[in-house]
């Protein structure tokens, strides 16, 4: 009950934000908020595997970045009129979000399925290291792509259009990002409460028992991992629009680590927690960097203390209920 109330208040705040900021002549912050929402979406997606599924993926940056690249590359080809694929059929770029964003989710999802298919054969620490190593592999492959800028990243010309409507300006993209986030949270919460989610959680708590009950644990996990990767890719597409730029930095292990920190900081296994965690972490980074050049010296120990002594995360403090993680 209290959790629902907290979520509703949070939603109200996010809905009110554009009007309040506009009234205060601080519309600039809306762009910052959009970036937070995109990361929140990715962090919530990670929570699906990390919190509910107990799979500690250290490679979600790869899916986030891949999604960003797909949206960016499609816009890039659209703007210079070149072909993405010239043979056997010519496929050009597109600015239409209804095509580009599902494509981003699809490509990231396929990548997640491939990486998951190998990684999920293992458990525990193996899984952590393998997802990390595969993400590194994707990172280096992207760096080597000369046509899309390599380390320079890809300048994204303009933004996507949504069903023909422009997304230029701060507010339209903010609303879209918020809508996607709310939709995913609603979908995620209901799925996790349904049979799929129950089986996933059951497999995390006692894999042997789940197997004995006839739960196809491997396939279940692979499905969750793929879904999570796809949603992270969608978040990447939003991020590409927000910053008009795609950087391989999004695929780096630091980004993967940051996503994990967001989930834990907010509270794993709650889906709402990671959203709060993403907003809190990005705000803390900004604030600390404003205080000192050596802000990492504050952020590092602070994170350490959170992990050591404050395990539940922020959300349970507000919602009064621990997550399912």
């Amino acid at each position: 009950m209290r959790e629902r109330l907290a979520a509703a208040i949070g939603l109200c705040l996010l809905v009110a934000a554009p009007f309040v900021l506009e009234a205060m002549d601080e519309a600039f912050l809306l762009s910052v908020l959009t970036r937070m929402l995109a990361y929140a979406l990715a962090a919530a997606a990670l929570d699906l595997v990390l919190g509910y599924g107990g799979m500690v993926s250290f490679g979600h940056g790869a899916f986030l970045g891949t999604g960003a690249y797909v949206a960016g590359v499609l816009l890039h080809h659209r703007s210079d009129g070149s072909a993405l694929v010239a043979w056997p059929v010519r496929i050009g770029g597109t600015a239409e979000a209804l095509i580009a964003w599902p494509a981003a989710a699809l490509v990231s999802g396929l990548l997640a399925a491939a990486i998951g298919a190998i990684s999920l054969r293992t458990r525990g620490v193996h899984f952590i290291m393998i997802t990390l190593a595969f993400a590194q592999m994707v990172f280096f492959l992207v760096l080597a792509l000369p046509q899309y800028g390599g380390t320079d990243g890809l300048m994204v010309p303009g933004r996507n259009v949504l069903a023909g409507a422009s997304l230029e300006g701060d507010a339209p993209l903010y609303w879209v990002a918020l809508a996607l986030l709310v939709a995913f949270l609603a979908f995620g919460r209901s799925t996790m409460a349904a049979r799929f989610g129950l089986a996933l959680r059951g497999a995390r708590m006692n894999e042997r028992r789940a197997l004995a009950l006839g739960v196809p644990v491997y396939r279940l996990r692979l499905a969750a991992f793929t879904l999570s990767g796809a949603v992270a890719g969608l978040a990447g597409a939003v991020l590409a629009n927000q910053s008009s730029f795609v950087s391989p930095d999004l695929l780096s292990w630091q980004r993967s680590g940051e996503l994990m920190v967001m989930v834990i900081l907010g509270g794993q296994g709650t889906l709402f927690g990671p959203v709060l965690g993403a907003i809190a972490l990005l705000a803390a980074e900004e604030e600390l960097a404003a205080i000192t050049e050596h802000w990492m010296l504050i952020l590092g120990p602070a994170l350490l203390l959170v992990v050591l002594f404050f395990r539940g995360g922020l959300w349970p403090l507000i919602a009064g209920k621990r997550g399912d993680g």
Binding site: E26, F28, S31, V32, R35, G153, L239, S243, S244, F245, S247, D249, L250, A289, E293, W295
Partner: peptide, 22 residues
């Protein structure tokens, strides 16, 4: 007014946006 981009293009852009717009 000095700000650290940490060699992250995304950060550099966010800082630029703040400096110019805000």
């Amino acid at each position: 007014v000095v700000a650290d981009d940490a060699l992250r293009p995304e950060n550099g852009r966010a800082i630029a946006e703040r400096m110019v717009r805000r």
